[in-house]
């Protein structure tokens, strides 16, 4: 269980929307805060680490929930 400050729900959205919504949402956070991104698009598993690597934010972790529906939870710590 990873602690987060803000949650962003992108359930039902396909690429590139989860990343675009993340890039907008992260601007509302202060440095050091953790954003939790909910997504059911499997691409998020690779896309979120890639987005973090490029933008410099820290990928804290990724959780996968199977029940009752498949949800990926990506945790991003705002670096600057």
């Amino acid at each position: 269980m990873i602690e987060s400050d803000v949650t962003l729900d992108t359930l039902g959205y396909f690429c590139p929307m989860p990343i675009i919504l993340t890039s907008k949402k992260i601007k509302e956070l202060t440095t050091g805060q953790v954003l939790e991104v909910l997504s059911d698009d499997e691409g998020i598993k690779k896309d979120m680490p890639a987005w973090c690597q490029t933008t410099g934010h820290e990928m804290v972790g990724l959780e996968e929930e199977v029940q009752p529906q498949k949800v990926y939870k990506a945790y991003v710590k705002k670096a600057r």
Partner: peptide
């Protein structure tokens, strides 16, 4: 446009 928006979201 998907590539363009994705790249812009990555700070490019």
């Amino acid at each position: 446009f998907i590539i363009a928006t994705g790249a812009a979201a990555m700070g490019m």
